[in-house]
Computed example of a mutant assay.
Amino acid sequence: MLRHEFRPGRLVAGTALVTAAVIYGGDAGGVWETPWFVVIPLVVGGLCLAGAVGVVTGQVRRRRGRPATEGTDPADHARTRGG
């Protein structure tokens, strides 16, 4: 049984940000030379792609009748917060 539901948008965002970190890490370590403006399109494009994947995932889950996110009911939130 899964501990949490799979969220592919977060996977895409994480991959883009880790890639940016590796690029800057290689530059800082002297392995290669990276211009400062190279990572901006990677991060912005990765976050936009992650948003699009998140929207598509939400639509697919709604269409299949599964809840898009758990815990969005205010009563659920109050129960978990002790209120």
Results as ranks from 00 to 15, higher is better:
Arg61Gly: 03
Arg7Asn: 03
Gly45Lys: 05
Val55Asn: 00
Thr69Asp: 13
Gly25Cys: 10
Gly25Pro: 05
Pro67Arg: 15
Glu5Leu: 09
Arg10Met: 04
Pro8Asn: 07
Glu33Pro: 04
Thr34Arg: 08
Pro8Phe: 06
Gly83Phe: 11
Gly54Pro: 00
Ala52Tyr: 06
Pro67Leu: 10
Gly46Phe: 07
Asp73Cys: 11
Ile23Ser: 02
Trp32Glu: 02
Arg7Asp: 00
Arg79Leu: 13
Val12Ile: 04
Val31Lys: 08
Arg63Ser: 09
Tyr24His: 15
Leu17Phe: 13
Val43Gln: 02
Glu5Asp: 12
Gly65Lys: 05
Arg10Trp: 05
Gly83Ser: 06
Leu11Asn: 07
His77Gly: 02
Thr57Asn: 15
Thr72Ile: 15
Phe6Gly: 03
Leu47Thr: 07
Arg3Ser: 10
Pro35Tyr: 00
Phe37Pro: 01
Val43Arg: 01
Ala13Trp: 08
Pro8Gly: 06
Thr57Ala: 13
Thr15Phe: 11
Thr15Met: 10
Gly82Met: 07
Glu5Asn: 11
Thr57Val: 10
Thr34Phe: 05
Pro41Ser: 00
Gly9His: 03
Arg64Phe: 00
Val53Tyr: 02
Gly83Thr: 07
Arg61Asp: 01
Arg3Tyr: 07
Trp32Phe: 13
Gly29Gln: 02
Asp27Ala: 11
Ala16Asp: 03
